Amino acid sequence: MRRKLVAGNWKMHGSHTANAELLAGITAARPFGCDVAVCVPFPYLSETAVALAASEVRWGAQDCSAHEQGAYTGEVSAAMLAEFGCRYAIVGHSERRQYHAETDQQVADKAKAALARGITPIVCVGETLAQREAGETESVVKRQLSAVIHTLGHCAGEMVVAYEPVWAIGTGKVATPEQAQAVHAVLRAQLKAATPQADAMKILYGGSMKPDNAATLMSQPDIDGGLIGGASLKAADFVAICRAAS
């Protein structure tokens, strides 16, 4: 069986005091029966690395440049992240696609850059409400994932995939377990056609996962954990989701 992964995405939240309290609350609850990670804003990478140094909780970034180095003001390379011991990098989050106009190929290039430095990319795919209502969910997520599979080639099996229906992110709306599983099954089939590692790959659900729905969602056969937004900012809620994954 695939070991579950629960990854918190703090988005643009945090402060020295709040971070210390949150991380202390999470680490105090270990051991966990699943893999656990927190993906934090760039300014807090160093202090998070120090705070989690003796913990089983891993940490990651919320983005990663596709470029190795150069005149790219404001960007952070995978090489820089790797120096801190970064384990994960979220790429292709719907907010990056929407607010920064990131294309499928740009997301794929970021995933490739992360893997080249030993960082596991958490590749996000998902449809908007309009696309779901138009019956385009499957074609949208397959198109988004296809670009990454093609770019990574034989390394495609080394990524983590996160299905995040855009209409369920931060809205309080949640895909039913059946809706989520249906899309996860589509993604698993696509991965199976691309890599022999597909059965061992993790596909996370991201979209208003909370303590009261986490266990039901993660009981589905192809849902291997969660990419957690708002609930990752409260230690008690995040720990409860980790317990549900266990």
Rank of each mutant, 00 (worst) to 15 (best):
A108K: 15
S246D: 14
S246P: 01
L81R: 06
T137V: 08
G60L: 03
W167K: 03
A147N: 09
A66R: 15
Y205T: 11
G74T: 13
G14V: 12
A168E: 05
M80R: 03
L22N: 02
T195L: 01
L191Q: 00
K4E: 09
W59M: 03
Q181H: 10
A162C: 13
A168D: 02
V107H: 03
M12V: 12
S246V: 04
R117V: 05
S208F: 09
R243I: 06
C242E: 02
V140R: 01
S77H: 07
L129H: 12
E133A: 07
M1I: 10
G207E: 04
G25C: 13
K110L: 10
L152G: 05
L52T: 12
A156F: 10
E68S: 06
W10E: 00
A61I: 11
A182M: 13
A37T: 13
S65L: 08
V6I: 15
G207I: 00
N9Q: 09
R3A: 05
Q62K: 08
G14P: 08
Q144G: 03
P121W: 00
L233R: 09
V174M: 08
V160C: 06
Q105N: 12
K210W: 02
E47C: 07
K142E: 14
L191N: 02
Y44G: 00
R87K: 14
Q197D: 11
A20L: 14
L187K: 11
A89P: 04
A29K: 12
